[in-house]
């Protein structure tokens, strides 16, 4: 499947996963989004996005060790695939290109 553009929230989720490195899983991703980007969302929305990104091949997942804090359940860790990284780059690049020349209006450093 060719990697098209990703949605804004998908983009944010992928960035959050990258920031978390190899410890990205549902709860951590939500916390990260809230802490860094101030974005809160419903748990359902996050899982739907993660499933979709995984189905698109932008993410891969594996289970960690079960732990008592989680009622004996494991964490489902996610990592960006090469396609995932490519999708973020492309989306990021497109945004940057679109924003070039608008720095004063957007009040950002060029």
């Amino acid at each position: 499947m060719g990697v098209g553009f990703i949605g804004e929230f998908e983009h944010m989720v992928l960035l959050a996963i990258m920031r978390l490195g190899d410890s990205a899983y549902g709860v951590a991703i939500m916390d990260e989004l809230e802490r860094t980007a101030g974005r809160t969302s419903s748990r359902g929305a996050i899982y739907m996005i993660l499933d979709r990104l995984e189905a698109k091949g932008l993410l891969t997942s594996h289970l960690g060790e079960p732990s008592a804090e989680r009622g004996g359940r494991a964490k489902k860790f996610v990592l960006l695939t090469a396609e995932g990284l490519e999708a973020v780059r492309r989306s990021q690049g497109a945004l940057r290109d679109l924003a070039s020349g608008l720095e004063t209006m957007l009040e950002v450093e060029p």
Binding site: Y25, V27, Y47, E69, R70, R73, A74, K75, K76
Partner: peptide, 16 residues
């Protein structure tokens, strides 16, 4: 599978 495991675990963690 892993989705069930992960989601149930996440919710248990948040609940705690």
């Amino acid at each position: 599978g892993s989705t069930r495991e992960g989601v149930l675990g996440d919710l248990a963690e948040i609940h705690r």
